[in-house]
Amino acid sequence: MRPPPNSSSFKREFLKKWLLALQLCNHNNNINKNDVVKRKNTIKLSAEIAMASVRNGATCWSRALIAKHSSSFHVTTKPRHMPPPPPRHYKKRVRCKKIIKRSRRCCHNRSAAAAVVRRKTAVLRKLVPGGELMDDEASLIRETLDYVMSLRAQVDVMRRLARASDCVAMCNIV
């Protein structure tokens, strides 16, 4: 794994790739200028892809993110065969209510906390891209660390850009 995102260089790289991704998005599918939702989606998509590509495939989440979005980038050229969907770990199992009750009664104290932790880990797994593919909790947490750092950098860059564009808009009006 590459070292974690150093703040300034990471942000610079991110900005570069973001702009490139925006161009790419724009040329792949021409978007109506008045459709705000579509534009927002494009911006978000490009930002996510840029963030993932800055990590350069070093982490699981970035690869998963790119793979998730790669279909939307290939509007004109569709892939010949779709990849098989990742195995789902979260099927709702139908169980007999009696059995559930009995199991709760017998080992309630011991496993209640563990169950809570498991549930929350599952939620976290859904939040982090590619988290479903990691069956190891340690790697999940490591990926989460990296993802949080990258997300922070991304939010910071976007915020600066938004503030800057606000400034420009104000100055244009005045």
């Binding site: 705000v36 939702v37 927002k40 989606n41 982090v128 939010v155 564009s165 808009a169 244009n172």
Partner: peptide, 19 residues
């Protein structure tokens, strides 16, 4: 993580709505 993702959403919305 959720708040960060939401922030990304909001900021991209803001950038899209910019003049």
């Amino acid at each position: 993580v959720q708040s960060l993702q939401r922030q990304v959403e909001v900021l991209s919305m803001k950038l899209a709505a910019v003049n």
